[in-house]
Simulated scan of single mutants.
Amino acid sequence: MDELELLKRDWKKKGNQMPKLGYDEIYRMIWKKSSSIVKWIFLISIIEFLLPHLLYLLPAMSKSIAVWKGLGLGNFLLASNVVQYSVVLFFIFLFYKRYKEISSLDNARQLLSNILKTRKTVKYYVIFCLSLIFISFVVMAAGIYLSDNPVEAMGYNYNLDNADPIKVKKTMIATVLLLGTIVTAVMGCIYFLLYGILLKKLNKNYKELKEMEF
């Protein structure tokens, strides 16, 4: 059991007999823990934003971009990147704003409000990121459907002269959608590990503040 739990239990047992300093100490510890959690959320979001740019240096990423262009989806790729950068940078700004607000708070009710805002911001951020990932795969599946020769457009050199082109398209579309579902699910698990654990701790701080306030 950490120092905060011990102090909080002692404060509850003594009730009104506990000096004001006991309440203030507990509040400061919750405030510091909350500030640290939001700081980590902010830092992780920056790392998550920068990491894909390092992946672009890999040959596989260059081939992936070529596939999008081969399917006639170059404009969508450009537009989605613009939207992604704009929205993600906006969320990073919000995380930084939440961190600065919590770092300068001296009021328990304001801290409660800010914790709620942070939880909502993270929730919307995760929903946006996962939605964008899945939509990208759906759009790629649509590009395959509309392409006259999706195999060639995607840069593959398979000899499919004797294959039914409709079946080939259906197989490719099903594969892309299945892959999209798997990737979205895996990323959802990663987001849960990165942000879910931090939000759980933040939610615990919120409940502790509610118990103290009311």
Rank of each mutant, 00 (worst) to 15 (best):
M29T: 02
G143F: 06
G74W: 09
L146R: 11
A79P: 07
M140L: 10
E213A: 04
L51P: 01
N205L: 03
L177A: 13
T184D: 10
W40E: 00
D164Y: 08
L50A: 08
T184H: 08
G143A: 05
E101L: 14
V87P: 04
S136P: 03
S80K: 12
A141Y: 09
F214A: 05
P19Q: 09
N107I: 09
L198M: 11
P150M: 12
L6H: 09
L160I: 15
T181E: 09
K120R: 12
L57V: 08
Y124Q: 06
F76H: 12
E25A: 00
P59G: 09
R98I: 12
L4F: 07
K204Q: 14
L105F: 06
I166T: 15
I41E: 01
A79L: 14
M187R: 10
G155A: 07
I135M: 10
V38I: 14
P150L: 04
F128W: 13
A60F: 09
N157L: 09
K201Y: 05
I41D: 00
A163Y: 15
G188N: 03
F76K: 00
V82W: 07
E5M: 09
N205Y: 11
G15C: 05
V138Q: 02
L209I: 03
K97C: 05
K117M: 07
N81C: 03
E208Y: 07
H53Y: 15
S36F: 07
I115E: 02
E5G: 01
L198G: 01
G70W: 05
P165L: 11
S36P: 02
A60P: 03
L78Y: 11
Y195H: 08
F192M: 06
Y191H: 13
Y156A: 03
I135G: 03
F192Q: 10
S103A: 13
L4Y: 02
K8V: 10
M212T: 00
K210A: 00
Y96F: 15
L105C: 04
E152R: 11
V139Y: 14
M18G: 10
I127E: 13
L193Y: 08
E213I: 15
L50Y: 02
I46D: 02
L146A: 12
M1W: 04
A108K: 15
F137D: 00
F128C: 05
D148R: 04
T175I: 07
I127M: 15
M140W: 06
V83Q: 05
V83H: 01
F192R: 08
K20W: 10
L77S: 06
N16R: 14
V183A: 15
I173M: 11
G74T: 05
F134T: 11
Y56S: 06
V186P: 08
G22K: 13
E3M: 10
L43P: 00
F49I: 01
I102V: 12
V87N: 01
F90P: 00
M154W: 10
K8H: 07
L78I: 15
L202K: 06
L55G: 07
A142E: 13
S45D: 10
S86P: 03
L202T: 01
S136K: 02
V88Q: 07
D161P: 01
T184E: 07
F93D: 04
D24Y: 11
